[in-house]
Design a protein around this nucleic acid. Sequence first.
DNA 1: CATGAATGAGGGTTCATTCAT
DNA 2: TATGAATGAACCCTCATTCAT
Lengths: 233, 233, 233, 233
Amino acid sequence: MSRTPDLMAKVSLLRTAEEVFAEKGLENAKVEEIAKRAGLSKGSFYLHFTSKEEAFQQVVESFLARCSSLIPEPDQDVPKDADGALVFMYEHDLSTFEYFWQSRDFLRIMESCNGDQAYLRDAFLDDTVKNSQRWVRAWQALGLFRPDADDGVAASLICGGYRELIRRMTAAEKKPPIGEWLRDSQRVFVRGLGTDALIRAQERRDEAHRSKGEVTSIDVKKKKSAARGASRG
Amino acid sequence: MSRTPDLMAKVSLLRTAEEVFAEKGLENAKVEEIAKRAGLSKGSFYLHFTSKEEAFQQVVESFLARCSSLIPEPDQDVPKDADGALVFMYEHDLSTFEYFWQSRDFLRIMESCNGDQAYLRDAFLDDTVKNSQRWVRAWQALGLFRPDADDGVAASLICGGYRELIRRMTAAEKKPPIGEWLRDSQRVFVRGLGTDALIRAQERRDEAHRSKGEVTSIDVKKKKSAARGASRG
Amino acid sequence: MSRTPDLMAKVSLLRTAEEVFAEKGLENAKVEEIAKRAGLSKGSFYLHFTSKEEAFQQVVESFLARCSSLIPEPDQDVPKDADGALVFMYEHDLSTFEYFWQSRDFLRIMESCNGDQAYLRDAFLDDTVKNSQRWVRAWQALGLFRPDADDGVAASLICGGYRELIRRMTAAEKKPPIGEWLRDSQRVFVRGLGTDALIRAQERRDEAHRSKGEVTSIDVKKKKSAARGASRG
Amino acid sequence: MSRTPDLMAKVSLLRTAEEVFAEKGLENAKVEEIAKRAGLSKGSFYLHFTSKEEAFQQVVESFLARCSSLIPEPDQDVPKDADGALVFMYEHDLSTFEYFWQSRDFLRIMESCNGDQAYLRDAFLDDTVKNSQRWVRAWQALGLFRPDADDGVAASLICGGYRELIRRMTAAEKKPPIGEWLRDSQRVFVRGLGTDALIRAQERRDEAHRSKGEVTSIDVKKKKSAARGASRG
DNA sequence: CATGAATGAGGGTTCATTCAT
DNA sequence: TATGAATGAACCCTCATTCAT
């Protein structure tokens, strides 16, 4: 085992660094404040990081790692049918927004990337778009998204739109109705990019929602068999 | 008379300030560099601005003023029919993107607003969304957008999506095919938010585009009368 | 005749310089403010003075010259008898204090002499003491002051004491009862330094003052003949 | 532990600050020079003071504290009889002047208070006068000073006179005969303000001095019994 | 490992002075 | 003469980084 105090100190510093960077931005964050909040001295900071910038990078990277672990790849075991995919994506978006809401202070860090650090913010955003693009292509392959839509533009619109919603959320005094926002957004992108099959699934979802309130994965499974029955009849 | 005032001095300083702020961000921009690039001394800078921050604000405000003058209000004299509105909006978006492409260095400035200047960026983005929201409502009133779509969410998705495209554009080495991007985006938002009437207009546009290439306002006028004829028959 | 505008400008600058030096002190006085208040430009200032310090010196010197013209030399035609000398000195002190009261803003200038300018203040004070010393010696020669008093110390005490009164006066919100102060002071120095003859003259003055109110030179002339009569009787 | 804090650092800085302020005045004193003379860097200065002005205040305040501890209050255990009081005051003045002689560089600092710091000098001088005034009143109560003398004016004359002597002393190349100066001054103020009893005591002192040289407290005690004997006879 | 005093480069700002007009 | 834009040397203060303990 490595020495505990050492690790504790670094973890502690990373946490307070995240805090301070979020509050003040990279330039205005002071090494001393980071160290003090971690209950350590300025000198200790330099036992763990060679510079303030390095600490910043590590904070960003650790955040990105946490993000990656939350965002599934489209080739994983996820629902492939229209109804299931819709619910899956909705719930995934919901939990992602929830996570961003909790990390909303951190999102400000990304904004503080300027000059030499700008690439970090861009890398983060590019990653998000890339991942989104893989999903768009996957859904096109599944016949859920129209094949003629440009996956790059689609991914940009989705990520950008969601980023703006997150910005609004971050700026808001109190937590906005994320569920509503996401349902509205999903409707726009499903109609905007989806095949007829997906759009019909969405309409079923809306219909169910209107009659029964919130639709969960459980509802969807029931609905799927019902739909099969209906199409048979 | 004194040494002839260099009437270009302030303009020159504002331009180089814009440059340097774009490159380095507010914190990392050095007053001396701004002045030097304008062919002036550090001291001269303070003949025109009381502080670096004031110069930053003036740069931002002058940009916002230029923006405002480019963005029309929905209650102005603009086409009210589906075909005309589509073309108008497309062409407006195109010229806006063109302007942003030329000002792409500046857009980086908005990103460099942190701490005390953050409100400038947020005010800019909020303004954009507000304007977009007015357009959404106007189109709903005209029967072009579905009345059940949430105008706030819609405006956020549109602005966020376009902002992301602009980010991609700004980061690109060479000018991307903005026309293509915008056509794809318009298709997404028209399908996502539009009424059947608008969607049909879009399909006509796409059809015409496929057969004849770029559609201009002139084409649309022809098409409009054709459509009228068709609906009569 | 030299050119008028030129002279006007310099006089004007000297006057405003005096004002500003009085208000702010040498270091904090800005050349631009001096020039502006004189209705001139910064550049003009340097047509008349080679530096701010030179202007300061000229202001001080002009003040000292005005002072000198007000302060009589002991070898001039002044009363030589005890009663006349007392009244003369009292009235001279009174007018001097009156002048200082009016120039109280200026006195602050002397306080702003530091570093390289310190010699100006010291020269001013030394001058005052030197002049006072000549008076002490003159009065000793006239048998009005005790011959065993050290003229240097006496002059220092007188000047220092009066300077402190002036300081109190300068700091005061409203004009203090200078006449009272000076009468009290004169009593102290007359008793402290005077011969019996002078002390008796002072007592006569006090007596007359008690019975008749303010004593003027006219009263003294009367009193002198009265005293002669008395000593005869 | 960190690098052993140089416990002398702050003391050292205060001392060199005192030096530099005395030489140049507040405005012209450079932080770097203060630090350099203390063998420290500019940055270290700010570990101990938040600004140059704060350092200046601390220098002044520490001097004032030292002064206060040297100046006795009149209600303390001090000789109440004419002879004892004279000797006490003379010796006290002597030691005070001695102290001021040693701190003569500092006294120049008080003169360098301008603008925002002027109140420091005025507070110092006002304090001195106030204290002196308490002594005048005490001596009046003891029947040593004439009751009709204005205590305010008397205190101003005493303090001002002594201040001027100190100024002369401070400006002098070599230490002047302070003892002589003070004896002369005391004679002036005793005659000027004292009752007959005090004046006679002073004359006894002068007489003794003429015959025996310096009079010490021991002499006074002998003299006191002698005087008692004389008054008895 | 931890500390925090010490460092010193760096940058914003001021303002006396110059000089082209 | 008069002007005031331009200059640039100074100087205060900050803070990332070092290092003796």
